[in-house]
Nucleic acid binder design. Structure first.
Length: 438
RNA sequence: GCCCUGGUGGUGUAGCUCGGCCUAUCAUACAGGACUGUCACUCCUGUGACUCGGGUUCAAAUCCCGACCAGGGCGCCA
């Protein structure tokens, strides 16, 4: 490794030490006989100060000629200096340009001149050099670390189900077809059927953090064609309420971790977080319909999923009541997939739920059907073909415990957590209807 | 897929309503110059753009049509 320290490790107490720093030339300011280079690394920015009379001539010339965003290694003496940003500066004895950046730059990594999202995504590597953009992905990493550790601590084991699946048989969302030797196959849209099958394996509690593919031609700030999800499934539940408790623990663990360990990143994004109180409110679908009619004068027909408008209105109502996170439960059975358990009291309803965050759905889940005959009946009722599900159904023939689970879209979670204006902000290299590069 | 809005130097924009005073505004970036404490340094000089195709007109960045691209809303969405 090239010997160096990160800018975050430099402090005025280290005055006089010989240091080596490495990074990108963030800014260059020439004042005749005095030259400032601002060098940016993963931690932040450190000032390199070159008084012409006190640094070697070739070092001064190198610094003067280096283009913005070039990669440099600077060796020199650390100096405590009130006038310098961060209170320290480096007086270089040596500057090496490891990689010279071409100019002009296609966008401005200092963020002085704004760029449109499309331009930013076209030049995403440069865009990611902005501290506030990088902050999103440091937070994403932390949130997923917390999710993984929390679920492991709750007795879940991490699994990996296939990305390549055989049939477009689940119904619902569109699949991307791929060529699999002499056959057609598809990219997985979710681990749904596999995580359920694992409930019959005795693994008992599983989770998967993975990428999924959805071929819908939607084109909104709220949809992607390649997403990352945290999926959980747990067995021996008494009802979907057991699943809701897992979700509450998971969400709180993720937000707590980010709040405690990403204060600098949150500050850069101008976001203040609060760990939500539990339990989150639970509203039934029927309660939501009457609430919307009473408080928002919005009448929805019973039986259909909530519209975008209805979700937003509900979000406003719940916000006024002091809740950003809340469950909507017991959706009409017809609006949910075939494997959803019917409600024990009302056969028109289901043991299902969504978690809403600021008026948007981030989690969807349910108790699942574990009875073989009922499952076959529901597959037929949805107009699907039983034979397409034979390997899935086999898992229900030889002993399947009651179980339930959920899937959470990570990008949606981050978008709402950090108040990002577009879901593409939460993905390094987003895939949408039109974008396949970079 | 439907509806709405837009496309001007590398980047972000003004100008379009009401065609001509546009040899196109401003900022930033870039090149050159002055400057020893900058921190969006300052100052001087310079380079650089009307998405493409067709139409109307004496005259089009500006009006009309089409294509392409982008942004937003809706639908779709485990």
């Amino acid at each position: 490794m090239i010997e160096r320290v990160y800018s975050g490790e430099l402090s005025p107490e280290k005055d006089g030490e010989e240091v080596s720093i490495a990074g990108w030339v963030h800014e260059k300011r020439k004042l005749g006989g005095l030259l400032f280079l601002l060098v940016r690394d993963r931690d932040g920015i450190v000032q390199v100060t070159l008084p012409k009379k006190f640094v070697p001539a070739e070092v001064f010339e190198t610094a003067k000629g280096v283009s913005k965003e070039s990669v440099v290694v600077v060796k020199g003496k650390l100096q405590a200096m009130d006038k310098a940003p961060g209170g320290v500066e480096v007086i270089p004895s040596q500057i090496e340009v490891l990689s010279s950046a071409a100019s002009p730059l296609p966008l401005d990594p200092t963020g002085k001149v704004p760029a449109n999202l499309d331009t930013r995504l076209d030049h995403r590597v440069l865009d990611l050099r902005k501290p506030q953009v990088a902050a999103i992905f440091k937070i994403r990493s932390r949130a997923l670390k917390a999710a993984r550790e929390h679920l492991l601590s709750q007795g879940f084991i991490e699994v990996h189900t296939p990305r390549i699946i055989s049939t477009a048989s689940e119904g619902g969302t569109e699949l991307f077809p791929i060529s699999y030797f002499e056959r057609e196959a598809f990219l997985a849209q979710s681990p749904q059927l596999y995580k359920q099958m694992l409930m019959g394996s005795g693994l008992d509690r599983v989770f998967e953090i993975a990428t999924y593919f959805r071929a819908e031609e939607h084109d909104t700030i709220w949809h992607l064609n390649e997403i990352t999800a945290v999926d959980c499934e747990l067995a021996f539940i008494s009802g979907y309420e057991d699943v809701l408790k897992v979700i509450e623990g998971l969400i709180c663990a993720m937000i707590r971790e980010v709040k405690e360990h990403c204060s600098q990143e949150l500050e850069r994004l101008g976001v203040e977080l609060e760990v939500p109180r539990t339990p989150f409110p639970r509203l039934t679908y029927a309660e939501v319909l009457s609430l919307l009619e009473e408080e928002a004068n919005l009448k929805l027909p019973f039986g259909e999923d909530l519209t975008t408008e209805a979700e937003k209105k509900l979000g406003e109502i719940m916000h006024q009541r002091g809740h950003e996170l809340y469950f909507v439960t017991r959706f009409p059975l017809d609006a949910k997939p075939f494997y959803t358990m019917p409600d024990s009291e009302d056969p028109e309803l289901s043991a299902s739920f969504d978690l809403e965050f600021k008026g948007r759905e981030i989690i969807s889940g349910s108790q699942r059907i574990h009875d073989y005959d009922l499952l076959v009946q529901r597959i037929k009722a949805k107009g699907l073909r039983e034979q397409n599900f034979s390997s899935y159904l086999e898992a229900f023939k030889y002993g399947m415990p009651p179980h339930g689970g959920f899937g959470m879209g990570i990008e949606r979670f981050l978008m709402l957590l950090l108040d990002l204006p577009n879901i593409r902000e939460a993905v390094l290299f987003p895939r949408d209807r039109h974008r396949l590069e970079p």
